[in-house]
Design a protein around this nucleic acid. Structure first.
Lengths: 239, 239
DNA sequence: ACAATAGTATTTATAATACAAATAAAGTTG
DNA sequence: CAACTTTATTTGTATTATAAATACTATTGT
């Protein structure tokens, strides 16, 4: 039990959550009973039960007398929960998962840009511009590429001033991390990519919702197309 | 403590969750300490702590020694959690919340239709068509309007075959319920509305992603426009 | 006066134990 | 063999005790 978590219950949540998302415990599987978890982790029932309750609150497991603790259908999992997203990241994401992430990003981010152009505050513009500066620095190797990129996307969601879009920050962040893992480029962002981001910012700043939407859309579509082609190639090779 | 919940801890979760989403406990506020919650609900510390853990797993509260139990910033709330969405519904949703729901629906549903047209299975088409039949019956008053409508939207998300879109079923369902509450029409769906849904289905069935997207988009845009106008009118009246 | 330090009190964290309630599975009966 | 009863297992709840974390208070030295 490694990890830097606040307390025992949280550590157990983390361990079990990881195993569920990795597929060590599959949908329908039973987890060890409370008693067994106690001995496995060498903790009291109090801590064990609190962990079980937290995981059930995240929609991963059910826990009922005599039936035990079971992994529930994945449609019940709170996939937009920060922890769950991190556990997804710990498991080995494949190309199909990357595509699923990109498909939802394609839905979310252009519309977020649209809303940002409509409802942004001055402070939102400052935040987006800060991220852009960091990205420009990154092209010169003076800042971290990925962090700046993530910050840019986050600041646009924030500028939508819609709580639901803002809550999706976790999702988008994880999606970007998965993306990074696959492209695996340690190189700085290209100027072309930087310019695409600047375009989106300008449209938001100038209150041009549709233009902001379109700019965000083309970038996303292009990325998704690449992955679709990769999957196609992979499937042809297999057959 | 009314409600038909499984056990004490869940009842407390429900009571406190409602109060947080209603604003009885506001962001930054302290909830009663564990000891006080025990006496307030007349239950043991075990049950109380389990409830607190569940709420913190849903991102609503933090609980730390000496600092007590506090409502955290709303950006940490898991707004896509089934329970949280239901608590939103219990509180009195206003026009602004309705708009927020519609804005995200506008992002999600057209893209879901797009994906459904690409990735649907035969069983998905059956499910969508079933919902359509129920809607047609509803126009004749032979079935429940709203249930059929909800089922239609759910079946399209399901047909996207993307787990993230599928997990958003809870969100869309709640959004539809909020919408129903505001339009408050107990009348059957109109034929025009029914036809719009049929169009989407046909495009999905014929594997026409862009057409499915566009059909879904126009409907959503129209609904959002109406609400935007309502809010505008409301704000002009106030000033 | 005040900054650094040490002490205190409050609140959550964990453990251990006991019993209650739910329920799946086995056994019994008509 | 179907309906019912019993039993065993597992989670649910309560209680008590102690540990750990930390906000607050008091002290101390300059």
């Amino acid at each position: 039990m490694e990890s830097s978590h606040r307390n025992l219950a949280h550590q157990v949540v983390h361990e079990l959550g990881k195993k569920i998302l990795q597929g060590t415990y599959k949908v329908g599987d039973s987890l060890p009973s409370e008693a067994d978890l106690c001995t496995e982790f060498n903790i009291s029932r109090t801590a064990t039960r609190e962990a079980v309750k937290m995981l059930s609150a995240k929609g991963l497991i059910s826990s009922r007398p005599r039936q035990g603790i079971k992994v529930v259908e994945s449609k019940h999992w709170n996939l937009f929960d920060v922890d769950v997203l991190n556990w997804i990241l710990i498991g080995k994401p494949d190309l199909y998962l990357l595509r699923h992430f990109l498909q939802l990003r394609l839905a979310i981010e252009p519309e977020a840009a649209f809303l940002a152009a409509q409802y942004k505050q001055d402070s939102d513009l400052v935040a987006i511009e800060n991220a852009l500066v960091r990205m420009k620095d990154a092209t010169n190797g003076q800042d971290d590429t990925h962090e700046a990129d993530i910050e840019f996307h986050q600041s646009i969601l924030s500028a939508s001033n819609n709580p639901f879009f803002i809550q999706l920050t976790n999702f988008i962040t994880t999606a970007l991390k998965v993306n990074i893992r696959f492209t695996n480029r340690m190189i700085p962002v290209t100027l072309a990519e930087y310019q695409a981001h600047v375009d989106i910012f300008e449209h938001i700043k100038n209150s041009e919702p549709q233009a902001a939407f379109d700019s965000a859309m083309v970038t996303q579509k292009a990325t998704l197309e690449i992955v679709n082609k990769q999957i196609e190639a992979l499937e042809n090779k297999k057959v």
